[in-house]
Write a protein that binds this DNA or RNA. Structure first.
Length: 638
DNA sequence: GGCGGGCCTG
DNA sequence: CAGGCCCGCC
């Protein structure tokens, strides 16, 4: 099965060679201007809600640009600020600093700020941003291009994703609910009463609630541990940034922040669960036959599942599962409300997974994307009866949200993705193992399904949506908790796949697309070295095949093409995509062909007598880099 | 001098 | 793929 990323009709972004043309591509957590909010704004506000609001309703940043610190007008941030004005699409990260509605805090920019707290906040920002999967968090900051080119590719991409989604569906269903047989109407749930359903739901939601609390504690624990790192000098990039702003540690404010965060998180979770209960109660679990069909007595919290036939191209009109969910207004409320008031913040969690339907692109991407690809389905609660809290908690805290529940006895053996090596490992150690395991299982990137919540094929969409929110929170916590110290085989695989898009990634691109990597000089060098090696192999192949073509008497470059059947492509694919589980973008074939032609022409012209004859070719090829799909930004793509 | 890229080698 | 080396650039 060839699951594929969208064949972007890439722009010639010329990364690497023309890095100077691009603004800094920093994750929000590295962005200075993301920190430029005084803690005061949190003191009596809803932090998470504000963060979410910032992310989701960034558009409104226009009205609150005064929140930016004047001193934060670094070249890049300045540009972004402007882009937030000029491009309604490119505001996801741009507008964050000022997009929240202060709930009584004084205007920003006037007070000294505790930078370490800002950094913390920035991490949260980052989480939110990753979750939001901003389609416009492009590295280029070229609002014009974002408004034109990117938009031009939207339809293609969306259509593509839709197509791919359809292709994947059967397989997905297999994964998520154990095969088509289980979805026969009435095959499993015909005997269940509403009460039972409701009871199970409640049990599981309570489990989720408890789980969230645990994660929250975990999160805050890690959060607290971050402080010492602020003086860490082994992270040049970060340290430099931190030093730039100066680290004035205000313990008291830190405590306040933590408490507020904690409170906020609890409240958000509670609200979320409450809403679910409310909906469950109000709906009476009156399932339609169709719903029953896809329903099993268990609560399928298949959070990473594909969204089935959600009008991908028009999600702004039909935000996510709203219809199916029978949600009166909440989604729409968050997605379209331009005049949302601060009081709405208790519902902020919803915003994480459903972003505003400002434009078709943002709408689509925002609603579809999640930090983790579906094939990871960190939560595959697919069990005949509700798991006990202890089971859920144990599993999640043990293996992390990346793992499925395949290791549980109630899961079919075929679903078991984590065993047999799912031995006792600390939380922090799990994600890496899980990722490695995942990557070795031949799972594919599924960009269009990035953590998207299954809708149509789920019996209780509204419930699932809520669970999706919870899962999103877990993802986001997980992303924060699983910063890698080093690079893993999974990262290598991801890098290779990225090579299909970019041959010359800048260090900023690398940082952007390896958000779970704790970057330092060594890591950066290693990543760069990887791509250097990739290029080396790539060019060697090109030269080899070009020379072979000449030997074979090919007289016209036009006679040399690179298709998926080409021997050259197979060689490359074998190298970068050994498992062949990634659909190589067409653009890569084009670039390969161009490269081959370049070599052919150069050799034909006897330019290879010049020791540096390849440099001219490199110069051409480096301009053919594409944007790496945002899906690669997830911390655990593979 | 630091850094990134390329080349060569194992 | 990593390490060592060289080179050019800032």
């Amino acid at each position: 099965m060839n699951l594929s990323l969208p064949d972007q009709n890439m722009h010639s972004s010329s990364e690497g060679c023309l890095e100077d043309d691009k603004p800094d591509i920093m994750l929000p957590c590295f962005r200075r201007n993301m920190y430029d909010e005084p803690l005061a704004s949190y003191s009596n506000g809803s932090i998470i809600s504000q963060l979410l609001r910032k992310t989701i309703h960034n558009k409104r940043a226009l009205d609150e640009s005064h929140f930016f610190l004047p001193s934060s007008a670094a070249p890049d941030s300045g540009q972004e600020d402007q882009s937030s004005v000029s491009s309604k699409d490119s505001t996801m990260e741009v507008a964050s600093p000022g997009a929240h509605v202060s709930t009584g805090g004084s205007p920003e920019g006037e007070h000294p700020i505790s930078d370490h707290l800002q950094a913390k906040r920035a991490r949260v920002e980052n989480i939110i941003r990753v979750m939001a999967g901003s389609p416009n968090s492009r590295q280029h900051g070229d609002s014009e291009r974002l408004d034109t080119d990117a938009r031009d590719t939207r339809e293609t991409r969306e259509t593509y994703r839709e197509n791919k989604r359809k292709q994947r569906l059967p397989q997905h269903q297999e994964h998520s609910i154990g095969g088509p047989a289980n979805r026969r109407p009435g095959s499993t749930n015909s005997d269940n009463t509403k009460d039972e359903e409701c009871h199970k739901l409640k049990e599981q939601l309570h489990s989720m609630q408890r789980l969230l609390r645990q994660l929250q504690e975990k999160f805050l624990q890690v959060y607290n541990q971050e402080d010492p790192e602020h003086n860490d000098t082994q992270e040049p990039e970060l340290t430099k940034d931190r030093m730039k702003v100066g680290y004035l540690v205000h313990q008291r404010e830190s405590q306040n922040l933590q408490e507020t965060l904690k409170q906020e998180l609890s409240q958000a979770v509670n609200d979320c669960v409450d809403r679910v209960f409310k909906k469950v109660s109000s709906s009476g679990l009156d399932l339609s036959p169709q719903q029953r069909m896809c329903s099993s007595p268990d609560l399928q919290i298949n959070m990473g599942a594909d969204r089935k036939s959600q009008q991908v191209g028009s999600t702004q009109e039909q935000p996510l599962a709203e219809e199916a969910a029978g949600k009166p207004h909440s989604l729409e409320y968050y997605e379209s409300s331009e005049a949302q008031s601060p009081q709405d913040q208790t519902e902020a969690l919803s915003l994480v997974v459903r972003k505003p339907a400002i434009t078709p692109l943002s709408s689509v991407n925002q609603t579809v994307k999640r930090p983790y690809p579906v094939h990871q389905t960190p939560f595959q609660f697919n069990y005949p009866t509700p798991l006990h809290d202890s089971q859920i908690l144990e599993h999640l805290l043990k293996y992390g949200p990346h793992s499925s529940f395949g290791g549980l006895p109630c899961m079919p053996p075929s679903m078991d993705r984590t065993s047999p090596d799912s031995v006792d490992l600390p939380w922090e150690a799990i994600s890496m193992r899980a990722k490695v395991t995942s990557s070795h299982l031949g799972h594919h990137p599924r960009p269009s399904a990035l953590g998207a919540v299954a809708v149509d094929n789920l019996c209780l969409p509204h419930v699932k949506m809520e669970c999706g929110e919870l899962q999103s929170m877990l993802f986001c916590l997980d992303a924060n908790l699983n910063i890698q110290e080093g690079l893993t085989p999974s990262h290598l695989k991801k890098a290779k796949l990225m090579f299909f898009y970019t041959r010359y990634p800048s260090s900023n691109v690398l940082k952007t697309f390896f958000p779970d990597v704790k970057f330092n000089r060594c890591i950066t060098s290693q990543l760069i070295k990887w791509f250097s090696n990739f290029r080396e192999f790539y060019y060697i192949q090109m030269e080899k095949f070009a020379r072979q073509a000449i030997v074979d008497g090919i007289s016209d470059v036009k006679d040399m093409t690179v298709s998926r059947d080409s021997e050259l492509f197979r060689a490359l694919n074998m190298h970068y995509n050994k498992a062949n589980d990634f659909h190589v973008p067409d653009r890569f074939l084009e670039v390969a062909e161009i490269t081959l032609h370049e070599f052919y022409n150069a050799i034909s012209a006897a330019k290879d007598s010049d020791p540096s004859w390849k440099k001219a070719i490199y110069k051409v090829i480096c301009k053919l880099d594409s944007d790496v799909p945002d899906e690669f930004k997830t911390s655990s793509y593979l």
